[in-house]
């Protein structure tokens, strides 16, 4: 699978939900799509899944357009946090419809998952609890075996135990049938170790697209005496800084290696890095006051 996105733009009335998205995704991997609320993640995923058209620019999968093109959409399974299923159907009816839509559908696996999440096939969608509704989305997403499987916050209402089950199943399913999986979530701490690649959307643009291990190399926390740190970080890309008791901690981005005996060097986890990167703008505002 090869996804090529260039100069993609989506406008709702006067609001630009997507400004200028350029992305190239390929191969079988699990990709994390992160961003604050309103960053444009869901809009992007919906365009990718062919739900609606972009305002401008281009999006192609294997050199084919997606919108209104069953040849492409049959290969994409997109699970949103809500509004996935017609409320009057039963769980079984949803499974049957999905089995007809997705060519690689695995029925016995779907039934096994139904059992794991303790869903009753006869139950109507509208009577499902939030957690059960999310579980059904996960069951469809995993059983579809779609070459491009996209989960957008798929676990609203799902408890920690069932979320952990989801991560186990996701990995297992990915190992048995490697494919391109995009997972968008705010629970970064829980899933960061699953990602091979990370994309961060910020205000309708791609702020960052990196291999997880590169991201790890590309930043550093340095700690030391305030005056020394201040001098060192001058003209460098600082995404966070804080001082206490004469000791200063600064987080630097776009740094390769810091080899300075005076400083203690360590790393952030993905969630912290995400927070500092996306808060940057706000910090500028706070500082200019």
């Amino acid at each position: 699978m090869n996804i090529e996105v260039s100069k993609l733009k989506k406008v709702y009335g006067k609001k630009e939900a997507l400004k200028d998205i350029n992305l190239h995704l390929s191969g079988n991997k699990i990709i994390g799509l992160l961003g604050k609320n309103g960053a444009g993640k869901t809009t992007f995923m919906r365009i990718l899944a062919g739900h609606f058209r972009q305002s401008k620019g281009d999006i192609q999968i294997n050199e084919q357009p997606v919108f209104n093109n069953y040849e492409q959409t049959k290969d994409i399974c997109f699970i949103m946090e809500s509004n996935n299923f017609y409320e009057k159907f039963s769980v079984q009816e949803i499974l049957t419809i999905s089995s007809k839509f997705y060519p690689n559908w695995d029925e016995s696996y779907a039934n096994k998952l139904l059992d794991i999440f303790q869903l009753n096939a006869k139950q109507k969608i509208k009577t499902l609890s939030k957690g059960m509704y999310s579980a059904l989305g996960i069951i469809i997403g995993l059983s579809s075996n779609a070459p491009i499987t996209i989960f957008d916050e798929p676990y609203i209402g799902l408890d920690a135990s069932n979320r952990s089950t989801f991560y186990d199943l996701l990995l297992q399913s990915y190992q048995q049938n490697p494919r391109l999986i995009i997972l968008s979530t705010h629970l970064i701490d829980e899933v960061s170790k699953l990602f091979e690649e990370v994309i961060i959307f910020h205000e309708g643009s791609v702020m960052l697209h990196e291999l997880s291990e590169e991201l790890e190399k590309k930043h550093a926390i340095i700690k030391g005496r305030k005056e020394e740190i201040d001098q060192y970080i001058k003209n460098r890309h600082v995404i966070h800084e804080s001082t206490i008791l004469g000791q200063k901690t600064a987080v630097l981005f776009d740094e390769e290696k810091i080899d300075d005996e005076r400083f203690e060097v360590s790393k952030l986890n993905l969630q912290e890095l995400f927070v500092y990167l996306t808060k940057e703008r706000m910090r500028e505002i706070v500082h200019s006051n």
Binding site: K29, I30, S164, Y167, D168, L171, Q172, Y174, Q175, K193, L194, F195, E196, S212, E213
Partner: peptide, 17 residues
């Protein structure tokens, strides 16, 4: 690789590395 991935809930590519 797969056993490590499963045990630690990490991406198989990371375990492979």
């Amino acid at each position: 690789t797969n056993e490590f991935a499963k045990h630690f809930q990490i991406n198989p590519a990371t375990a492979a590395k």
